[in-house]
């Protein structure tokens, strides 16, 4: 299924903009490209416009200006043909508390005019099984825990084989075991060729499962691309662990290492320019009588990249 769309983009927006009635600019000139077959992480602090973007992509909100294409079709005009191929979990699950888990899925499946009513029960059973809710399927949804509701929401998104899955904070409310299960489910779906668009505020989650990522802040797109490139964009840190931090800092400074930070048990600084061999640096430290316990360059995490981009901590609301 992925073969037909390989090389194309599954989601593409051009100058997508949403200004709400109050004049508040929620999304500002967004140019987003989600390649087919990717697991795309959509990052940003609360209030940065992620959910508004997702709602525009799903045809729930009309953009003020700009255009969005999903599976090659313009949204929101083509909702009827596009959305049967898209599974979505938007801003947490929403269920009919007075219906059982199974009946909730039957209701959502009935809402899809492309779903064959003859195979409805089998589809629902498969989806329940896939998220591990078969045993609780007969219970009323209001008795579900947050994690079970989240799973049921995921099951609704998985009722049909999808070409695109849009998952807004899918591991919210899950225990660590549940998180692992969801992540492995996402990987499994991605290996089947489904493109997964995953919004999250958990950077390590994005780093673990995503191949691509985009970062938003205050309604604007800061960057997008393969996760490896984004992390590489932020430079790592040279970390020296030593009981003699003062001496180590002096030696490193002589060798031209910039941005030194001295702590009780070590020194960190910018890694040297590519011309300098790290081994020579270490040898110089030892030759100067510095007792070195640990020496190396720590790879930059996505969080470093994020902080470098936004210039602020992650939980700051835009």
């Amino acid at each position: 299924m992925a073969a037909s769309t390989a090389g194309e983009s599954v989601i593409e927006t051009r100058a997508l903009t949403k200004r709400y009635g109050g004049g508040q600019l929620a999304v500002d000139g967004l140019d987003l490209t989600v390649p087919a077959g990717s697991v795309f992480g959509f990052l940003g602090p609360n209030g940065s416009g992620k959910t508004t973007t997702i709602r525009m992509l799903m045809g729930l909100i009309a953009p003020t200006s700009g255009a969005a294409r999903v599976l090659g079709e313009p949204m929101p005009r083509a909702t009827r043909t596009v959305l049967p191929h898209v599974g979505a979990l938007i801003e947490g699950p929403a269920l009919y508390g007075y219906l059982s888990g199974r009946d909730n899925l039957i209701r959502y499946d009935s809402a899809d005019p492309a779903a064959d009513p003859r195979t409805r029960r089998a589809r629902v059973a498969t989806a329940l099984d896939r998220v591990g809710l078969t045993a609780a399927a007969g219970k009323k949804a209001k008795a579900y825990s947050l994690g079970m509701k989240q799973r049921l929401g995921l099951a609704a998104a998985l009722l049909q084989p999808r070409r695109l899955l849009v998952l807004d904070e899918p591991t919210n409310g899950l225990d660590p075991q549940g998180m692992r299960e969801i992540r492995s489910l996402v990987r499994e779906l991605a290996s089947d060729g489904t493109t997964v668009f995953l919004s999250s505020h958990l950077l390590d989650e994005i780093e673990q499962v995503c191949t691509h990522a985009a970062v938003m802040a205050r309604g604007r797109l800061l960057t997008q691309g393969p996760v490896a490139e984004l992390a590489a964009g932020a430079r790592g840190r040279l970390v020296v662990t030593t009981p003699d931090p003062g001496d180590a800092a002096r030696v490193l400074k002589e060798r031209g290492v910039a941005d030194l930070t001295v702590t009780d048990d070590g020194v960190t600084g910018e890694p040297p320019a590519p011309g300098t061999d790290l081994a020579d640096l270490n040898a110089a430290l030892v030759a100067a009588g510095v007792r070195v316990r640990g020496f190396g360059v720590e790879r930059a995490s996505l969080e470093d990249a994020f902080v470098a981009l936004t210039g602020e901590g992650f939980d700051v609301a835009g």
Binding site: L83, I90, A94, A111, D112
Partner: peptide, 9 residues
């Protein structure tokens, strides 16, 4: 929102 993305129309 889930009925509309189903898509109920």
């Amino acid at each position: 929102r889930y009925l509309l993305v189903a898509p109920a129309g």
